[in-house]
Nucleic acid binder design. Structure first.
Lengths: 145, 145
DNA sequence: ATTGACTCTAGACCTAACTCCAAGGTTTAT
DNA sequence: ATAAACCTTGGAGTTAGGTCTAGAGTCAAT
């Protein structure tokens, strides 16, 4: 069993963050000592790392909560888990595509612009930037948030 | 020339957001009327759309500012623009990879879990979730923020 | 038995990116 | 010429995700 400090160190976060996650309902201590010290097992550490990982991939804490909640639910069945997974995957795909368009645009620009001495007004990157990006926005004109 | 309201409508944001971007140095009005009304041209609209697009792809406003700033700088030359572009591309690639790992994990899980009636404790998704994700974290144990 | 490292709670504070509000001035339509 | 729909500034409030502080209790080592 780890104390909060050890857990935090192993997951490379602060103890404040761990307590914050607890408040947010993401990570409860496995046990408490008589003095009220939080204690965590390996499962908690894995959970904490999962949270950080998911967060790093663009999930918000409440989305992460959704995923983790399923795990703790006794009523949920495979079907529920599966449909959340599908929803999340679609969101991911969408985001990935947006990033890829952006990345591809940059790739092209970097390739074009090789003349180190060329002055700014002759830089093809800037001219191309908006055009390249604009492609993606096409057909979304009336999309509502 | 558009007034702020028209500009905002066309880009699907609020007028408050446009003014906020102005404060943040991202989007200055093209002109002002005698009464102090902001006026924007098509270029401003494209810029605003670009901001939203980039933001949607995970760039923060200050990162977007960096990109846009180059455009307005007279000292910058192609070389500078190019190196910012390369930096941004690397950041993008990194983020894309993280999302792809996540997405791939979900794909596998969705495929595995087809039994609608299976109870939760037999759901292979939950068992696999952390393992799949854990792959990505390997070798990063001591990475500092 | 006391020092130093650790933990507790409660609550204030922080940044990013808005969002809302008040109190007024302007433009347009009838 | 007056009401509706717009615009202005300034500043307060909001949400997410922490981060920091104060004041006090606990634990390990000397």
């Amino acid at each position: 069993m780890h104390t909060i400090g050890k857990l935090a160190r192993e997951a490379n976060v602060t103890t404040d963050t761990v307590r914050y996650y607890e408040k947010a309902g993401l990570l409860a201590p496995t046990a408490k000592t008589g003095a009220g010290y939080r204690l965590y097992d390996e499962e908690a550490l894995r959970r904490l790392r999962f949270i950080k990982q998911a967060q790093h991939s663009g999930f918000s804490l409440s989305e992460i909560n959704e995923l983790l909640a399923l795990k703790n639910s006794d009523e949920a069945c495979c079907k529920d888990v599966r449909s959340v997974a599908i929803t999340k995957k679609l969101q991911l795909e969408h985001k990935i595509k947006a990033l890829q368009v952006m990345s591809q645009a940059l790739t092209e620009l970097i390739a074009i612009c090789n003349d180190e001495a060329r002055p700014l007004d002759a830089c093809p990157i800037l001219a191309a930037l908006e055009n390249s990006m604009a492609k993606q926005t096409k057909g979304k004109r009336n999309a509502q948030a």
